[in-house]
């Protein structure tokens, strides 16, 4: 899983640098986020601009991060979803769970 982590406006921003999140790399993403949370990075924004495909295991990895961050009074939000990726959150009603922002500026205004 190619990704980049940056601290911005008090948040840990994960830039996913893959076009595809599926069962081949979602386990790695889940572990990475879990490791961050265990080390106290509990305000996380996942930037999904490069991602044009996500499957159920990818949604599961993000949901795992959301639940683990929430358990430590933190938050995991999403930003820059492509329309078809967003439609997967809508189909599973996970758009009611995650805060999903159009861009990082909007995310910082609400999360930072």
């Amino acid at each position: 899983m190619k990704l980049k982590l940056e601290k911005m406006n008090g948040c840990s921003v994960i830039f996913i640098q893959e076009e595809r999140i599926d069962a081949h790399n979602s386990g790695e993403l889940k572990e990475y986020i879990l490791h961050m949370i265990e080390h106290g990075e509990i305000n996380i924004i996942v930037q999904l601009e490069s991602v044009r495909f996500i499957d159920s295991s990818g949604l599961g990895a993000l949901l795992s991060g959301y639940k683990n961050a929430a358990a430590k009074s933190g938050k995991l939000a999403l930003a820059c979803c492509k329309q078809q990726v967003l439609s997967m959150f809508e189909l599973t009603r996970l758009n009611r769970v995650f805060e999903i922002y159009t861009d990082l500026n909007e995310a910082f205004e609400n999360e930072a």
């Binding site: 499957d55 159920s56 295991s57 949604l59 599961g60 990895a61 949901l63 795992s64 639940k67 997967m88 189909l91 599973t92 009603r93 996970l94 009611r96 769970v97």
Partner: peptide, 19 residues
């Protein structure tokens, strides 16, 4: 079917296929 009010990390794959 997945429980949309208490979503779980797994069990969505077959739901996608069926839907």
């Amino acid at each position: 079917l997945p429980d949309f009010d208490q979503p779980k990390e797994s069990g969505m794959g077959l739901y996608f296929i069926r839907t």
